[in-house]
Design a protein around this nucleic acid. Structure first.
Lengths: 219, 219
DNA sequence: GGCAAGACTTTGATCAATCAAAATGAAATC
DNA sequence: GATTTCATTTTGATTGATCAAAGTCTTGCC
């Protein structure tokens, strides 16, 4: 079985490649991401390579193998299910559960994870709105996406706001952006990073990309 | 913070001293209990001594300090609360949760543990009938005890059967020993290790000590 | 092309936890 | 009291994960 350290390296490589949309991940990013010395990362990556979890070209970068991807998705699943449990069942704040899940994800067995999944009603998204991989290591078909990702002009229903700060919630309420409401993206300008949308039949208004990303809608 | 290994040594010393009712625990028991080589235990105990968790007299034995006792009770609390959650909420069988809890108990933070405790309704006993220490490190006043421990002749109510095997449950049902029923211990013979009891106003019958121990009653 | 800067790798050391095997001590047996 | 036996301790080595610092590429700039 992989050690917690190995699991963390693989998970970090996966999220880095997901974030940057690059398969290959640089050694520096890994070291910085895991807060270890550069040399530590280099030597650890060599162990991962011996385990056939990654491919590694010296001074170029690291990519996950199929085996590594499987493990990485499994870790993501563990992490996000645990976060969901902590928020949904135990009532912790979604901003504080990351660190907790970081520890628990290594300690939870496949069996308990399955039961937890069932207990939570097989959720597809975690409290941050990120998709929870299935047991087979695939992301759920994105039925929910953030407003920035919506291109086609159709009506959508607001599902979740991923920023629960008082300021943001007040802003959203003022604009009528509360879960259950229908919205339509009337225009999208990727250069100015803005999204124009209409709530109900009120006058359309424009949202910055940062705010648009925090609003999850079902298509 | 103590490592998982340190936590395991301290917990093992506590349960051994609880089991044997001896404060002092031998090095051999510790090594065997944790399945490590004898020398490993000796050297680890020295580290525990440096941390002021135990007192240690060479070739005599090990006792917990106040600090060690506190940590040990905390581990027991973690372990038993996690077991309770796995059985009560996730529906695992009480025979299979020990190993799971063994891992999780090291990964769970104080905060999450408190929430879990609350979520479970602050239980005082785990699914095996063992008392769950309070946050202050004390066992709950034993309001529930097994039939073997009952000396005074008063009516008691069956609370829990700690053996869930089909055979035992069938036997118990046949005898009317189901939770909620009133029973009275009419005689107790520690030499033959047997307990005579009466259920309702039926004819008294005798139970072996092993079976008596599996039946928990409130006094 | 030459060279400086920054990214990456190598080297040598440390720390925690472990083992096997050798040394030591204490208790039980003769 | 001497001896054997068994528990315990000591010793020396190993493994995984880490660091600091020294060494080596690569890139881009003049």
């Amino acid at each position: 079985m992989p050690s917690a350290t190995v699991e963390n390296y693989v998970k970090k490589i996966l999220v880095l490649s997901l974030d940057t949309s690059e398969e290959q991940v640089g050694m520096g990013e890994i070291a910085k991401g895991l807060e270890v010395a550069a040399g530590t990362a280099t030597s650890m990556i060599k162990t991962l390579e011996r385990e056939r979890l990654v491919r590694y070209k010296s001074r170029q970068g690291v990519t996950l193998t199929a085996k590594g991807l499987k493990l990485g998705m499994d870790m993501l699943r563990r992490h996000r299910l645990v976060e969901t449990f902590l928020v949904e069942s135990l009532g912790l704040d979604w901003t504080e559960v990351h660190q907790e899940a970081e520890e628990l994800e290594h300690a939870i067995s496949e069996k308990v994870l399955d039961r937890l999944d069932k207990f939570l009603g097989r959720p597809e998204f975690d409290p941050h709105g990120d998709p929870i991989p299935t047991k087979e290591g695939k992301f759920a078909e994105r039925r929910i996406r953030n407003l920035l990702e919506c291109q086609s002009k159709k009506l959508r229903t607001i599902k979740l706001l991923t920023d629960q700060s008082t300021d943001f919630l007040n802003f959203a309420r003022r604009k009528g952006l509360v879960p259950g409401t229908s919205v339509e993206v009337t225009n999208r300008d990727l250069i100015s990073d803005a999204v124009e949308l209409r709530v109900g039949n009120k006058k359309p208004f424009t949202l910055g990309s940062k705010a648009a990303k925090k609003i999850l809608v079902s298509s």
